[in-house]
Design a binder for these strands. Structure first.
Lengths: 191, 191
DNA sequence: CGAAAATTTGACATGACTCAACTGGAGTGG
DNA sequence: CCACTCCAGTTGAGTCATGTCAAATTTTCG
């Protein structure tokens, strides 16, 4: 099935019965996006969390001078959303945009609450998910503070070996917090 | 009771019965620390998560040149731990140290698992906790990348108005990712 | 092929770090 | 109560990392 990939991921943390699987699957909707399309625009309310079955997204904020600040690259097997907006129902400060043809499995806020209620095991799944996301993000934060741009770039390439193939260099620069020009000269020095 | 403050916090997310409260409370131990004492040292395994009832802690990593990098200041009503070490049982790369006389309510890993098992509602409490921590941390990460040191310092003071009173300036500098000297000259310019 | 966008390159400006010296307050022991 | 030491904080000079602006070059894609 389309959403097998998501069920595999869930199955790593919690065991679902056949009925639970079919109940869960009945609420999940598969949706496709083409490169450049917005899953979410700044100012809108984030109404879905999307599990990436295939493809690649970027999330970013736009500052007062109109520059994009990439906050995440999201590929297969990650959840995409602006959690804060999703949970509070307030306007999002992020945009989420496809950078490849992308297929996601998504859940609305309302359906997620239904799932928490009907299958409380999902509290555990998402607890573990956020725990891991929190830990990973903290490491990234530490790296930003103590490492130089060249070091950050190298460890970024190690953690995402597919980066050069799938992402634009100016987006990588934005993600690392440097200008595209400076990233370009960095690359030259590293050769 | 000593741990009322913790129960209040839990009660904001989930409703416990009297039996559940007394079961939970039977597993929580209160412990006190004096300034300079270590709740956790780099290299040790983090065996407890501690809820701060009163006082203040700092968590930091030490780099190869022996310099401290403060990753967090923790005050009343926050949980303190190295989650990664706590969850995986591996040696921690962080130290946690009291900077004021501090009283915490703490739980061992084993007792926490017992609680998850006996009172599954706690999955929800911690899910929401990590969600919020994740969101807050993401904002901080964005700020690090796009803001200049002076801006970070100002927004740090806004979010922690008690900072100048409770933390050393060199620790604040470390937390912001700048040298103490540079923070000093920043302050002068801001006047 | 041609236009638009991405990347590279160079000159110069600024932010932030290092090292070193100095100031001033908080113990501590006589 | 003084002299001493030990830190934290300040200040300044020189340097390196990174940003800005502008132009040249390459790539992408209709």
């Amino acid at each position: 099935m389309y959403t097998d990939r998501l069920l595999d991921n869930i199955n790593r943390q919690i065991k679902l019965t056949a009925e639970e699987i079919s109940f869960f699957s009945s609420l999940v909707k598969v949706k496709e996006w083409t490169p450049g399309e917005f899953l979410l625009k700044e100012g809108e309310v984030c109404r879905y969390i999307s599990y990436i079955l295939e493809g690649c997204l970027k999330t970013y904020q736009t500052d007062d001078v109109g520059r994009e600040h990439i906050t995440d690259f999201l590929v297969e097997d990650w959840w995409a959303d602006d959690l804060y907006s999703f949970l509070t129902g307030t306007a999002s400060t992020y945009s989420i945009r496809a950078i490849e043809p992308t297929r996601v499995a998504r859940l609305s806020n309302k359906d997620l609450e239904t799932i928490y209620k009907e299958i409380p095991k999902f509290e555990r799944y998402f607890r573990i998910l956020f725990q891991n996301a929190y830990i990973a993000q903290k490491k990234q934060l530490n790296a930003m503070l103590s490492a130089t741009a060249a070091e950050r770039y190298k460890s970024f390439l190690q953690s995402k070996p597919y980066a050069l193939r799938r992402f634009h260099q100016k987006d990588i620069a934005s993600y690392l917090g440097v200008t595209p020009q400076f990233l370009s000269t960095l690359k030259r020095k590293l050769r």
